[in-house]
Amino acid sequence: MVNSGLTQNNQLDKEHSGDKPLRVRFRWLTDNRMSFLFLSPTMLLLLFIAIFPLIWSLRLSFTDWSVIGDAGKIPEPVGFHSYGTALGLGETRTEKRVGVEVAERFAITGQFVLPTVIIELLLGFGLAMLLNRKFLGRGLLMTVMLIPMMLTPVIVALYWKYMLRTDIGVINYLIHDIFGGPRIDWLNQIKIAIWALVLADVWMWTPFMMLISLAGLSAVPKYLYEAADVDQASAWFKFRHITLPMVTPLLLIAVLFRTMDAYRLFDQAWVLTGGGPGGSTEVMSFYLYLVAFKDFETGLASAIGYIMLIVIIALANLLIRKINEIADEG
């Protein structure tokens, strides 16, 4: 029976020597001390290398200090002057030009971020809808699609630069020689160059949108569709009232990530178009770099940086609020 082995086996309590537990080692390391010990390196480093510089640049943004000319000098406070200049309230000609430039660069950034995120979202979600099933080589496809977003942005930009060349570029060869379209001067035409940036970014990040959409789609419980089938719901109804509400929160998170990343795009603009032609691809990050390290207007650059920061925080908050709203409803 179940207990036969136990009742006859009495050697354990006979031998009960009651070995006393040893004193626990590292007794001095109480939970409180340990949490302090574990947290402080991370918090200190972040404080010194992320937060301290930020405060410093806030201070600089209220001065007209320049890293080149004024090294060693005490920064001269100028109040909100730099902010005024950046926002187009300047009085002198150069100041007015800066205001116009900042507005233009914000517009350029918008012209890049908006189409990029929208195309990636639609394309990625569409692909996911189509590919949301089991098929041969699914794992391989997923792995291949992960590669672009892991690659060095500088190299991606380099390679698109080569492929987009008017004369020897393979893209133009395909468009012109194979499909009979016009040769497109991707990188040297004002209206088109920004689309070269969009194209490269779409190549890199559409898979990201697709993979997130797929994760979202596969998380929709099957019984919801089965219930809708029982009710003879149309395909559109199922999409509109089951699929979309279930994947929207995840998609919004993806949009948040992509917007934040696209907003700070730098490497590709630097390598692929170099801001040209005629400054038509100088996105904000790139412009800020030029003001800070080409014109050496450190104070002004800090102010522009803060304006950039405020814009992205506002934008992110808007999106996060939307995400939370939807999460609360669900």
């Binding site: 179940v2 207990n3 136990l6 009742t7 086996n9 009495n10 354990l12 309590d13 009960h16």
Partner: peptide, 16 residues
């Protein structure tokens, strides 16, 4: 049900 019986015996045997 089995383990209940077994645990009871175990405890009785070890008298802990």
């Amino acid at each position: 049900t089995d383990m209940r019986v077994e645990l009871k015996h175990l405890q009785a045997d070890m008298a802990t």
